[in-house]
Amino acid sequence: MEFEAIENQNIAASGGAGIGSAKTVIDAGVQAVLTGNCGPNAHKTLTAAGIRLFTGLSGTVAEAIETYKSGKAVEASGPNVKSHSGMDA
């Protein structure tokens, strides 16, 4: 499998991290995003760019891609967490 890893410059942002992260992957030219959780702002941004979003994935990146390839990944109908939910962890 070919891959490219991109550093997410938004991990330490106190606000707008989801939007910035979404913008990063949009600019990288992705067509789909596989993730654990996606908040409202990132969801809005990805949707505006026409990117497919799959939430609820876990494990390694390779495992997430296998889940996607096997058709078991569930396409998100909306954000699955609230704003700043990552801050509680």
């Binding site: 809005k44 941004t45 505006a48």
Partner: peptide
């Protein structure tokens, strides 16, 4: 610096 306005290819979004 706050991602309150972003430009995606041909649309600009505001938060």
């Amino acid at each position: 610096q706050y991602s309150a306005i972003i430009c995606l290819k041909d649309t600009v979004m505001t938060f």
